[in-house]
Amino acid sequence: MNPYVLFFLLFGLGLGTTTTFASSHWLLAWMGLEINTLAILPLMTQDHHPRAVEAATKYFLTQATAAAMILFGSTTNAWLTGQWDIQQAIHPLPATMVMLGLALKIGLAPMHSWLPEVLQGLNLTTGLILSTWQKLAPFALLLQFQTTSTSLLIALGLASTLIGGWGGLNQTQLRKILAYSSIAHLGWMALILPFFPSLTLLTLIMYLIMTLSMFLAFKLNKSTNINTLALSWAKTPALTALAPLMLLSLGGLPPLTGFMPKWLILQELTKQELAPAATMAALTALLSLYFYLRLSYAMTLTTSPNNTAGITPWRLPSTQSTLPLAIAATTSLLLLPLTPAMTALLKL
């Protein structure tokens, strides 16, 4: 792709998210979301193969519908209450509609089914943008507007954690597994959103770091399914040793970063006397943990029967920069001792 065009598109991505971040008016926030969608579509279709075009078409249809629902909800709110401000209290009916539009936009279950298919059709770089940067603008809106529909968010969150765990069980494609892991993490964020929004922000940041490290690791290995992961020990041994830890961090095991948001969310839910919801969420995290463990098993914990060419493949020095991967991997493993500082920093 022409570097000027690429710069323009990346600038559009930044501009859209910044517009949504900076706006207090629903129309401007909607414009930011639209700029985001329009800017990522050419990035998705830069390889002209049928899968990329199909993924872009599906992404366009869902995102345009979601944006139209959000704008319709805010327009209805303006007709009913006469104001456009995001942070003002919003009428319950349009609040539900806006909430459903945002859930469709980020891919919460039961509006999730586009996310694995779209992510499967993209290359790993665009997939990385889609599953990290594109979540920021909808979450800025979700964190700002005041909803009264607690039960809707709890239902969406529990359904997402369940479906995110369940759907990933039978997958062998890494991008689909990452998409289901994204759905499960978004479920945790939606679950805590009505009670403690700053925890949602914390979970989002932790999820972004861990997903960044996983995508960069897969990109370094050029692997898009489990089979190619089995050869990674011959290419990047140190990364192969670290990857199971990153996966377990995504799954939320204690000494790693991923435990922090799950711990705080379960504690807060128990404080709010929602022990059944907390138990459900913790149990569905086991489903996710199963496929993370299977990935780490295929990647590190076992040696697949190989021929000589598989054991000593031809290696060239990699031209990719590994500094982002190193930083992301370190933060996705070692951030748990900083829990008090993080919670103090992220007060909303």
């Binding site: 049928p50 075009v53 366009f60």
Partner: peptide
């Protein structure tokens, strides 16, 4: 209008690939 034109472009792309 921008959105509709993006949709039509995707329609053309889909017709060419599928």
């Amino acid at each position: 209008a921008c959105e509709a034109s993006a949709g039509l472009a995707l329609l053309v792309a889909t017709a060419r690939t599928h």
